[in-house]
Amino acid sequence: MYRLELLEIQLIKTTTGRRVRTIIEEQAEEVMMLINKNRNVTLVWHRNKGPQFIAKAYESGIKDNIEIPPEIEGIKLNTLLRRIAAVLQEHGSPFLKKAIGKHSLMVFNTAKKNKSLKAIFEEFKTMDQQFNLDSNNESV
C-alpha cells in the first residue's frame, strides 16, 4: 500500500489527476473484485501479463528512468488494456460498462503516448496549464 500512496500523492498534485482519481475510486472496488473473483476476467488479466505490467507501472511512477515496457512476452500494453476493457464491460455492472465506454479511449491514448507513470503525471500538469486549471481549484 505504501507504493500506492506514493502514487496517489503524485496524482492529486494536479486537478486533472484528481479527476482521474475520482474515476478510479468509483470503479476500483468492482474492478479488483472482478479480477480476483471472476474467472473470465482473472484469466484475461493473467494471460495478458496484467500483473507484470502493473509491477512495471508502479516502478515507473516512483523511480526515475524506469519505463513501462511496450510489450511483455509478446503481449502489448494496449492489447492488455483493450482485452481487459472488453472482459470487464462484459462481466461488470452497467455502471462499469458505461464508465468503460466513456473513459477507455482516454486510457488507451494515454498509455500509448506515455512511457511511464511519471510521464503521465507530467502530462496532467501540462493539461492543467493548457485548460487553465488551478491545481488547488477546479478552474481559474
Binding site: R82, R83, A85, A86, I100, K102, S104, L105
Partner: peptide, 30 residues
C-alpha cells in the same frame, strides 16, 4: 455506447478471426 461495441467487436473478432485479422486489430484498433 459505440465505444463499448467497438471494444467488444475487436475482442471477439481477434479471437475468432484469422491471424491476418488479429494482426490488423492489434495494429489499427486504437
Amino acid at each position: 455506447s459505440f465505444q463499448n461495441l467497438l471494444i467488444k467487436m475487436s475482442d471477439v473478432l481477434e479471437r475468432n478471426g484469422s491471424y491476418q485479422l488479429a494482426q490488423s486489430i492489434e495494429d489499427y484498433s486504437l
